[in-house]
């Protein structure tokens, strides 16, 4: 069967499951243990990132304390930015960026999304994505188009 016919079958044929299959049942293989949310990234920076954020080990109390220290420093930076008066238009984006970094660190490390199966990340990311998009649209309606 040609590739096109195969694809056609996969999409239209009544029992054509292959293309749309979401694996993960009893029959399919188990998740690799402790795989992070970003999958097996091959690039060098990616593996470097993987090593410092997880490294394939169980996280230790030391790791959590390190995360907390970074979070504290980021919070201090935020408060320091608040006292700097010359930032102008940069102020809000900078603060938002820092809080996104803190947000991701907490859900990734404290809430174990970095270490848990990816399904949880998908669920939460779907909720976050929908919420952020919908409310950005709402804010746009109010700030730009209502006057």
């Amino acid at each position: 069967m040609s590739a096109i016919a195969k694809l056609w079958n996969a999409i239209f044929f009544h029992r054509g499951n292959g293309w749309f299959d979401l694996p993960r049942t009893h029959q399919t293989e188990a998740l690799p243990p402790h795989e992070g949310p970003f999958g097996p990234m091959k690039a060098k920076t990616a593996s470097w990132l993987t090593r410092i954020t997880y490294g394939g080990r169980h996280a230790t109390p030391g790791f959590y304390v390190a995360v907390a220290i970074i979070l504290t420093i980021l919070t201090l930076v935020e408060v320091w930015l608040f006292t700097v008066t010359s930032l102008g238009a940069l102020f809000v984006p900078l603060l938002l960026f820092l809080s996104v970094v803190k947000f991701v660190m907490v859900i990734g490390f404290f809430m174990h999304l970095r270490f848990d199966p990816k399904g949880f990340t998908y669920i939460f990311a779907a909720g976050m994505g929908l919420g952020v998009t919908v409310f950005l649209v709402l804010l746009t309606l109010f700030s730009k188009l209502s006057g």
């Binding site: 499951n17 749309f20 299959d21 979401l22 694996p23 049942t25 009893h26 029959q27």
Partner: peptide, 9 residues
């Protein structure tokens, strides 16, 4: 889901 019942079954 029962064993074997993937999302698209």
């Amino acid at each position: 889901r029962a064993p074997g019942m993937t999302m698209f079954k």
